[in-house]
Design a binder for these strands. Structure first.
Length: 530
RNA sequence: CGGGGCGUGGCUCAGUCCGGAUAGAGUGCUCGGUUCGGGUCCGAGAGGUCGGCGGUUCAAAUCCGCCCGCCCCGACCA
């Protein structure tokens, strides 16, 4: 393809609205263009990269007998997988089954300056793995993850793995490209390697000194509706208070979660222990309906709500809690003596610095971009959706669904961050938009133009995609654009090269170039792409 | 939701505080010449309702009000 028709104006200056170096190169080289807040269009170069990524992934999934379908972006992917499965899954003979789709996906919270890494509009590889049993699922999940991680590996993308959690998910894994500017987080233990996303992370509760339980006592605490206000007013640390969080389950049941005042509720964990698919913050009216007072709530004497207490709050003696009366709190509230709970569970949010649940070491936060996620749905939820198949025994059995999502847009963004240098991009040959950047320095010498068109024909005959730069520009402009766009190989046809016996070849990122015959040049490209 | 900043040729930005005549630079684009291996040089040219509406004024990119758009920060955190 001729540079002229690529319809790209490379930029000398960085765009004002992108911060990350790789994303700036994507814009400057004409791979992508910002079209709105967090919205990026792919130009010809970017689209070619996306197509090549998809082709590679599809080839990987074909090895696993994956069937490509299409899920429009308007539908919820999980519901769509369930619908399709319900309609077409009949027999155990079909299992394990692998379906996938390249679908548009809207990210909920785009961030400024992040280019593709934070774009709102993304394209994801959605993958559904249906298995006959958890054993079968575990094996098949390993194969699918292996293929997809293998692709990331072949693109030179390092990833960190960790546990992932979401409502309705039994087990999950996330794989993150480490990047300081990323929006995703893994909490990792340097001692033992424990690694999890915050929503999935557990931590070891460290208890204070044992104390004798003091007598319950009501105190006036005017205008203390938040933990911070309360702790300041009573001059106690926040860890000496109990925080009450009210959530409403899908069935309308009110859930009263109690965590220590210095902790936060992990909603995903609460969903998990309750076995519900979602929770929403309760309305004040719903809270009052069970006899609690927003801002001054206490589990003491409460009826009509499901009470779940974090294990740390349950083990902490003499906490300050609400009195269920505006302007009053209770001192010395003790779990067991003063109130009971439906269950004591780990429902507090883990943070950097908390103790590792496995070995007690400190958890540290690593930022990055999650590229791949695997999530196995809770069997109970699938059974509730009557997603069943006929087993070999002749009985109906619930199916196990594992979803994988690989965000292609994020992946392209991360590739640009991973594969760029001071002068531009240098994407792996397997996904670069063209195989060769062919520079023609014709000048007034017709022999050069002739040699160039001969080389172009030879390359294309060999199935090599070529970006032909035959613009009337000075050499420096062309070389700089070649570096910026960063195709794996630059071939230069010029008077000088012809005198030296052929064309000049230079690998992107190499300082040295060499002169080859046209045949050798074609062979070099073929080697490079393989 | 609150506070702050920004909006000027395609792009990156001056100019606004302190109002003044055809509104600027670089880059990009077009044309002519020049150069011909790392963003050549010279000249000519096209291209802007200065985000929008209204107000003050002899005169508004500039001051005032409202609106729109973009950005940053803070925001309940129960």
């Amino acid at each position: 393809m001729r540079f002229l028709y690529l319809f790209v104006q490379t930029r000398r200056e960085n765009p004002a609205d992108v911060d990350l170096p790789g994303q700036q190169f994507l814009v400057r080289a004409g791979y992508i263009q910002r079209l709105g807040r967090g919205v990026y269009g792919l130009l010809a170069l970017g689209r070619r990269v996306e197509q090549r990524l998809e082709a590679r992934l599809s080839a990987s999934l074909a090895r696993l007998e994956g069937a490509e379908v299409y899920l429009p972006g308007e539908v919820d992917a999980r519901s769509a997988w369930l619908e399709i499965s319900r309609s077409h899954l009949r027999s155990y003979k079909q299992l394990p089954a692998l379906l996938f789709s390249y679908s548009p996906y809207l990210e909920p919270s785009p961030r400024r300056g992040g280019g593709l890494i934070a774009s709102a509009t993304t394209r994801v590889l959605e993958l559904a793995l249906l298995s006959a049993s958890t054993d079968q699922a575990a094996g098949a999940e390993g194969l699918v993850a292996g293929e997809l991680l293998g692709e990331l590996g072949s693109l030179g993308m390092p990833v960190l793995g960790g546990a992932s959690a979401a409502p309705g998910v039994e087990t999950g894994q996330a794989w993150m490209f480490p990047l300081a500017a990323g929006d995703d987080v893994l909490l990792q233990c340097e001692e033992c390697g424990y690694s999890a996303e915050p929503a999935a992370a557990r931590f070891r509760r460290v208890q204070g000194e044992p104390e004798t339980q003091q007598a319950l006592q009501e105190v006036a605490t005017p205008n203390c509706k938040t933990i911070a206000e309360l702790a300041t007013f009573l001059n106690v640390p926040e860890s000496r208070t109990a925080k009450a969080v009210f959530m409403t389950a899908p069935d309308g049941q009110l859930v009263f979660a109690v965590v220590r005042g210095d902790c936060e509720l992990n909603e995903t964990a609460l969903c998990r222990v309750l076995g519900v698919e979602s929770l929403r913050p309760a309305l004040d009216g719903e809270i009052r309906a069970v006899g609690a007072e927003p801002g001054y709530a206490t589990p003491v004497g409460l009826k009509g709500a499901r009470v779940v207490v974090d294990s740390l709050a349950a083990a902490s003696p003499n906490l300050v809690a609400g009195a269920n009366r505006p302007g009053y709190h209770l001192l010395n509230v003790n779990f067991g003596r003063d109130y009971a709970a439906e269950m004591v569970a780990e429902i507090a949010q883990a943070h950097s610095g908390d103790a590792c649940p496995e070995c007690g070491g400190a958890l540290a936060e690593t930022r990055g971009v999650v590229l791949l996620r695997a999530q196995r749905s809770l069997p109970g939820i699938l059974a509730g959706q009557s997603l069943l198949y006929m087993a070999e025994s002749g009985r109906t059995q619930p199916v196990t669904l594992t979803r994988f999502t690989l965000n292609l847009t994020r992946l392209m963004g991360c590739l640009a961050e991973r594969w760029s240098d001071a002068s531009g991009l240098r994407l792996p040959a397997t996904v670069a938009p063209f195989g060769v950047y062919l520079v023609v320095l014709a000048g007034k010498n017709p022999a050069v133009a002739e040699a160039a068109s001969g080389l172009l024909a030879a390359l294309e005959a060999a199935g090599i995609s070529v970006l032909l730069d035959d613009r009337v520009e000075s050499p420096g402009v062309k070389f700089n654009d070649a570096d910026l766009i960063g195709l794996p190989l630059r071939l230069t046809v010029s008077e000088r090269a012809l005198q030296q016996g052929g064309v000049e070849a230079r690998l992107r990122g190499d300082a040295e170039s060499r002169v080859l015959t046209p045949d050798e040049a074609v062979r070099l490209v073929l080697d490079l792409i393989l």
